[in-house]
Amino acid sequence: MSVDTVKQPNWFSRLAHPGQFLAWSRYLIWPLAIATGLSFAIGLWFAFFNSPEDYQMGDMVRVMYVHVPNAWLSQLVYGVMAVSALGTLVWRHPLADVANKAAAPLGAVFTALALYTGSLWGRPTWGTFWEWDGRMTSTLVLLLIYLGIIALWRAFDDQLKAGRIIAIVTLVGALNIPVIKFSVDWWNTLHQPASVFTKDGPKMPGSILTPLLVMMLAFTLLFALLQVVRMRTEILRRRAETLSRQAALQGVAK
């Protein structure tokens, strides 16, 4: 067996070194916060005052401006986690498992919000808060996967080992999510062929599309902001733990 793990640092690994990350990400927080606030202000103004009522749903259609961005983020966040899982397993990058750990609860919250707003929206449409609709069901399963990953993060003492093992779970989940989606859709058509949504999504006029896109941008920026803050917190927390362990070990040595 031959093991050779001496790494040549390149610009990326220098930039993504946890210490470096702490240094430069500090300058990211305020611009991100301001951009998030601005796009929410614009998006909400559009959503409340400058978009038409639906001829069937009336004002309820405005729930869409919160629901669709959350549904989009529920998948985007998993994508971020899958990419960081690759970073953990392939490049063994210390920042990658921090990114995975920081993103998991955010993904769970966005997914839960997507389900919550979806059921608010579903109430007037379906006449019930919950319907075993294909999309809602897949999203629910996605939430369960997020919660499982969070539970796994919390169960490990050794966070470095946890990072690598959870990366495997994350990737298996990423491979499985399309299968779950496909099987749920299949199951759904088997039991209730008529779905509320058409396959290509409803046709949208620009008056609805503009506020929707702005709101999606706003929520994505919010995720980016929270992700950066959570990653910084996690790095600092690990540092504090390392320091206290080192202090304990030095206490033993003396």
Partner: peptide, 26 residues
């Protein structure tokens, strides 16, 4: 993935169940 965990007995099913849904469905 839970082999080294003392509480693994409960976590493994929670992780596996959502992933196994397609098997149940088909």
């Amino acid at each position: 993935v839970t082999v080294g965990l003392r509480r693994g007995g409960l976590i493994a099913p929670v992780l596996i169940l959502p992933l196994s849904i397609p098997i149940m469905i088909f």
